[in-house]
Amino acid sequence: MTTTGGRTAPAPTTRPPLQLSTVHPGATRRYRLAGFTLHPQMRMAGAVDRSALPAVRGLREGGAEDFAWMDRLDERLRGGGHGPDHAYMLDRLRLVVSDDPKRPGYVYIDEELGQGVLLAAEEERTSQDLLWEALAAARDDTLVNCITTADHWAVGVGLAARLDIGQEGYLAVRGMGEPAPYLASGHFL
């Protein structure tokens, strides 16, 4: 909290200037008029072809000790760290991280739903490995959301896993480029 002229006001927050938008014309118009650039998103869904799953190496289970470098990676990719959201997600989701500090990256996996929920990495090779790990956790059907044109590496993985591709709305960003390699979460952009 800050005090100005005897009044207490909430402390300013720094939130990355990104939002998810539906294809509804009113939503896209509002975001565009507010100065956001709209990046079309794709989604991939279906049953993973288990025979296509590669042996992925260089990953390990993550934990709270990884949050500091994860927030630094988030800062570079999306303009801000996830901060306390990481602890919340870790309590509910499986965290898998790159074992190589020169190739930082992470993915949260919802094992109940059998899908990756949020993925961020420094480079595409790590992103691909993390997405394959998430797809290996898939049950009957899975979903890969929030794929922008900057993340065509995810399209390649999804097509190799025999998932179907479709259009899903927009990632709206203001004052920054498309975060990549990055697959946003609807709840924790």
Rank of each mutant, 00 (worst) to 15 (best):
A87V: 01
P84A: 15
A68T: 11
V173A: 09
P101Q: 05
D164N: 15
G158F: 01
G83K: 07
G80E: 09
M89F: 05
L113Q: 08
V155R: 09
A137L: 07
I165P: 03
R29H: 14
E61L: 14
D91G: 10
R50I: 00
G35W: 04
P179Q: 11
A150N: 10
A52P: 05
R29T: 15
D140R: 14
D129C: 04
G169K: 05
P10F: 12
T22Y: 02
Y88D: 08
D49P: 03
S185G: 11
G35D: 13
A120M: 05
D100K: 02
A134G: 11
A52S: 15
A180H: 02
T149R: 10
I109S: 04
A55G: 10
D74M: 13
H86A: 04
D164S: 15
V56A: 00
G169S: 12
Q41P: 04
Q128P: 00
V144P: 02
R60C: 10
A47V: 06
L163H: 05
A47R: 11
E65S: 15
A121M: 06
L38C: 04
L73K: 06
A9F: 15
S127P: 06
T126H: 08
L38H: 01
E123V: 08
A161Y: 03
R60M: 08
G81E: 07
G105E: 02
R174V: 04
G62H: 04
L118C: 00
D74H: 14
V97H: 02
N145T: 11
V23G: 12
W69T: 08
L53K: 05
P17F: 11
R174S: 09
R30V: 09
G6F: 11
G46S: 06
V56I: 14
P54C: 10
R32I: 07
L59V: 03
A161K: 02
K102C: 01
A134P: 02
G158W: 01
T8R: 13
L135N: 05
R29C: 10
L130V: 01
D49N: 14
S185Q: 07
Y108F: 13
L73V: 09
V144D: 00
D129K: 08
R57L: 08
S185R: 01
H152G: 13
L131Y: 02
V48W: 01
T8D: 12
P12M: 09
P12I: 12
Y31V: 12
P179C: 13
D129Q: 06
G158Y: 00
I147Y: 03
Y88M: 05
G83Y: 06
V173K: 05
A150C: 14
A52V: 06
R30P: 01
G79A: 12
T8C: 10
P16F: 10
L189G: 00
G80K: 08
L130S: 00
P25V: 14
E133Y: 06
R7H: 13
